[in-house]
Amino acid sequence: MRSVLAVHPAHRDDIADLITRRPLPGPDVEQVDPFLFLNHHGPQTYPPGNRGLPFGPHPHRGFETVTFILHGSLSHLDSGGHESVIEAGGVQWMTAGSGLVHAELSPEAFKRQGGPLEILQLWVNLPPALKMTEPRYTGVQKADIPTLSIAAGNGTLHLISGEFGGETGPIKSLTEVFMSWVELKAGAKAALQVEKGRHVFLYVVAGRVDIAGTPVDKYHLVELTDDEDSFVVGAADDAVLLFGHAMPIDAPLVAHGPFVMNSEDEIRQAYADYRAGKFGDPAKLIKAGD
């Protein structure tokens, strides 16, 4: 079984009135290659007549964003012409690649009515050969995500990408990333399989768990060794975990704002291309969420 290398707390970093916690990057962990960044927004309840999420048009290049809508809803619009509103239990997977401008805002219905909101956004790096790949986007609703029974029927794995228990997730990852989120009832225990050499991304969204004998509370990221092909997680309370894994890229990493590349020159070129309008026109995305 894999063992725990380190446990990293998420640090509070609110954005306007949006409760935000960030476990990655943190003071003691830059990345869990190829996983770069995680923002945990909420949980919180928005009143009727709220302003919604503050993520107006902004650019990205060189990586992918995976957004989990646990509660609430999220409107997506980007300069590649992709548009959707994803409800609770759904996922958005955007490959920024060579460059996109996108907006992530609350739909008008949510702003009028309010309600609970909890959203996770994970950034996944792309290898040098795919940094400038053609952008793409997939939005998947809850009903289209396979749910698999684990922990002797006391848990559920929601499969986003990759294979598990004979099922295949609805999103095809360019780099064979496995991605899911897991729900466990109090007292449940599950052995989760991971091929040797793949890096595990494991974040405790809610509840208290025991990972390979180490107690871990909510809002903590867990680093595991990569020398074995499974690990055990037990739930002290009803728990929710973000669980993914992938082969490390092991390439130079230069990140600046919304761009993640392999050199300073590539970062400078990204800014130049954005200023030149090569990512698309942000003005056309202002009405996202209407």
Rank of each mutant, 00 (worst) to 15 (best):
R2W: 05
V4K: 03
A6G: 11
V7R: 01
V7N: 07
A10F: 02
R12A: 15
D13F: 12
D14H: 09
D14A: 02
I15P: 00
I15V: 06
D17S: 00
L18F: 14
I19W: 03
R21E: 10
P23W: 04
L24M: 10
P25K: 00
P27Y: 15
V29D: 02
E30K: 15
E30G: 14
E30S: 02
Q31D: 15
F35Q: 04
N39K: 10
H40D: 05
G42T: 05
P47V: 02
G49V: 00
N50D: 10
N50V: 14
N50Y: 09
G56T: 08
P57V: 06
H58C: 03
P59R: 02
R61E: 09
F63G: 05
H71I: 15
H71E: 12
H71C: 07
S73Q: 11
L74P: 01
L74R: 03
S75P: 08
S79P: 01
G81T: 13
H82W: 10
S84I: 10
S84L: 15
A88I: 13
W93K: 07
M94N: 04
A96S: 11
S98V: 11
G99T: 09
L100P: 14
A103D: 12
E104P: 07
L105T: 10
L105G: 08
S106A: 15
E108L: 13
E108I: 14
A109S: 14
K111T: 12
Q113K: 14
G115E: 10
G115V: 04
E118C: 12
Q121A: 01
V124S: 00
N125R: 00
L126I: 08
P127M: 05
P128K: 04
M132Y: 00
T133L: 01
E134C: 02
P135S: 11
P135R: 01
R136E: 03
Y137P: 00
T138Y: 09
D144S: 15
S149K: 04
I150V: 07
L159K: 05
G162E: 04
G165V: 12
G166V: 09
E167V: 12
T168E: 11
G169D: 08
K172T: 05
K172Y: 04
V177M: 02
L184P: 02
L184T: 07
K185G: 14
A190L: 09
A191H: 13
A191D: 12
V194I: 11
G197V: 12
R198G: 03
F201S: 00
V204D: 04
V205W: 01
A206M: 07
R208E: 13
R208I: 14
V209I: 13
V209T: 05
D210P: 03
D210L: 14
I211S: 05
A212P: 01
G213R: 02
T214K: 03
T214P: 04
D217A: 07
T225F: 07
E228K: 15
D229M: 14
S230I: 06
S230F: 01
F231K: 02
V233N: 02
G234R: 11
A235N: 07
A235Y: 07
A236G: 01
D237A: 12
D237H: 12
D238L: 09
V240Q: 13
L242H: 05
F243L: 01
G244I: 08
A246N: 01
P248D: 00
I249E: 06
D250L: 15
V254C: 08
A255C: 06
F259S: 07
N262Y: 02
E264S: 10
D265Y: 05
Q269G: 06
A272F: 08
D281W: 06
A283N: 09
L285K: 10
I286Q: 13
D290F: 10
D290Y: 15
